[in-house]
Design a protein around this nucleic acid. Structure first.
Lengths: 318, 318
DNA sequence: ATGCCTATTGAAAACGATTTTAAAAAGTGA
DNA sequence: TCACTTTTTAAAATCGTTTTCAATAGGCAT
């Protein structure tokens, strides 16, 4: 029996006799044979695999994004592989090498660290999409939320609660999302006629320690904040714990608004109000659009902003 | 110029003229050429990639395990790819298909769901290792901690604090680690001459809700527990929050001991005492052993149990 | 019996690299 | 100049599949 016939059986081709099918199946069973994908992929020049590139698996909301991607990909016969850059742009480039060298058919950058010009160049030649971060350059398929609007909404909500001195805890690292959320914060203040006060803005990282530190600093001011918006729940929780320990009544003396709606945001009492972004949907959407692009002649390079929502809990007195 | 020469240049082979090197490099630069790994991997029949198979990216301590694996692998020129099973044994099998079909050179199962007999069979033919879960079958390379001992230590510590009625919150799903931790709990009771009381054992899942529920149930007992050991921090935190809300003084009325030392375990005040397992080291170790096995004729199929430690904080009155 | 069509099969080419083998070019010494 | 070695290059084999194309066999109508 020729390899061609075996191949046909293994791929359920129609033009093959029942006899041959049985013979092959028995042999496969007996030998424990499984086909070498390298050969197959080389011949077909496709791998049916999509790479998700993330900074680390630490940010818990990635889980839902990845679930969304998986559902979308699996439905079309693709597997999702994940690789972490450890927040190193160079390593991110290295991982994209898997795309150049055809080890995967497409890649989704979840919160990329490399510059958008590079991404743009690459996306002309390869199937690339970006998720969770807006790209300020036109021409790249991108699925995210409107972070500026979200920052605006959260801050406005605090203002609506009668607060006038609103602190912002954000990150030193200037990711597009943090910049956008900050801009939203500023716009909300502006709209309400509240002057921007740089002493009320603290720059740190994404940890709880940053939250505590920021709150400590704020308490040194003669004119203390009466509400705090953080660009991540983890930061908010750190700040809230510190505030709680120092006798501040959360939801009254001071309001807190977080971002991401992580699992632990509704654990600590009083529970944290936060911005919920549709993680699963973003993942599902970006994967679907990317797969569609891979089939299509003229790729979709739009930016899709999916709706976020405010989750109101005790930390804003709700 | 022939393809052979190009290949030699690209692989830094010695027997090639400077002239040829320059010519190739210029052409590569100009055309933006990058080699097709499928061809290379097929010929060499190795991919220099290791697959890490996990349930989901939700469990935050996986991050450190993966970091350890990456450091070890990267040092030897291997990349680490991650794939999630979504806790579905069938999907886990599907992912192992990447190993059978030579799409990766080896695989590490982090907390596998498929049965150990299957793993044993596969590990005779492929480079497989298990991490974070003990395998009760001999013959599989495995890196983990001594969960029984850890359960014993945590429970004994509570007993040492004079506690006599110690509750256990564990999971319905019988993973080896949870079984081992439970056994440790029982052994500690036994050693101290405390009778095992099944009313003090609650079976749930890995969520904070399970913690709250369990505590609620325990409070209905006429003879309430004075200490609680949970097999995960998330559960402990859920129980602690519930206890706190219902006026129990943590660290005094009731002690709590968790497991995993997650980031949030030292956020909530009073802070949670917990068992710390060496995540990074487990990841590094398992990857190193696996890579060593891939080179060696007779593979190492031992089980390595790395040392854990107790982190003592306010929840046990420390 | 001849020709035609269909179902099945096998041989061979193709995918893109690496590696082996052989031959050509260049260098060396007498 | 010739023989011999060394360096460099080209051609061909190889990895394990899929796919194309041609060939064979059998059935059926003429």
């Amino acid at each position: 029996m020729s390899v061609a016939t075996v191949s046909r059986v293994l791929n359920n081709k129609s033009n093959v006799s029942d006899e041959a099918v049985h013979a092959v199946n028995r042999a496969v069973e007996k030998l424990g044979y499984s086909p070498n994908f390298l050969g197959r992929d080389l011949r077909k020049s496709e791998t049916k695999r999509i790479l998700a590139i993330i900074g680390s698996t630490e940010e818990s909301f990635y889980n839902d994004v990845l679930r969304g991607m998986q559902d979308a990909c699996f439905a079309q016969g693709y597997d999702v592989l994940i690789a972490t850059t450890r927040n190193d742009p160079e390593h991110e480039m290295h991982l994209l090498g898997m795309l150049f060298s055809k080890a995967v058919d497409g890649a989704v950058l979840l919160a990329p660290k490399i510059d958008s010009k590079t991404i743009l160049d690459l996306s002309k030649k390869y199937a690339i999409a970006v998720c969770l971060e807006r790209i300020d350059t036109e021409g790249i398929l991108c699925v995210t939320i409107n972070n500026e609007r979200a920052g605006f909404d959260a801050t406005s909500y605090l203002i609506g609660k009668g607060r006038k001195r609103i602190g912002l805890i954000t990150t030193k690292i200037r990711s597009q999302s943090s910049v956008d959320r900050e801009n939203g914060y500023r716009l909300a203040l502006e709209k309400a006629g509240i002057p921007y006060d740089e002493r009320l803005v603290y720059y740190g990282d994404y940890t709880t320690e940053t939250g505590s530190r920021a709150f400590e600093e704020f308490m040194k001011l003669d004119s203390k904040p009466d509400a705090i918006f953080s660009i991540s729940d983890t930061i908010s929780l750190g700040a809230m714990v510190y505030a709680h320990e120092h006798g501040c009544v959360i939801g009254k003396d001071i309001l807190f608004f977080g971002f991401d709606n992580i699992v632990y945001s509704h654990l600590f009492i009083p529970r944290l109000s936060t911005v919920d972004q549709p993680c699963y949907l973003q993942g599902k959407t970006v994967a679907e659009k990317l797969l569609a692009n891979m089939k299509s002649e003229e790729p979709d390079t739009s930016t899709y902003m999916l709706p976020h929502s405010l989750i109101l809990r005790e930390s804003t007195g709700d």
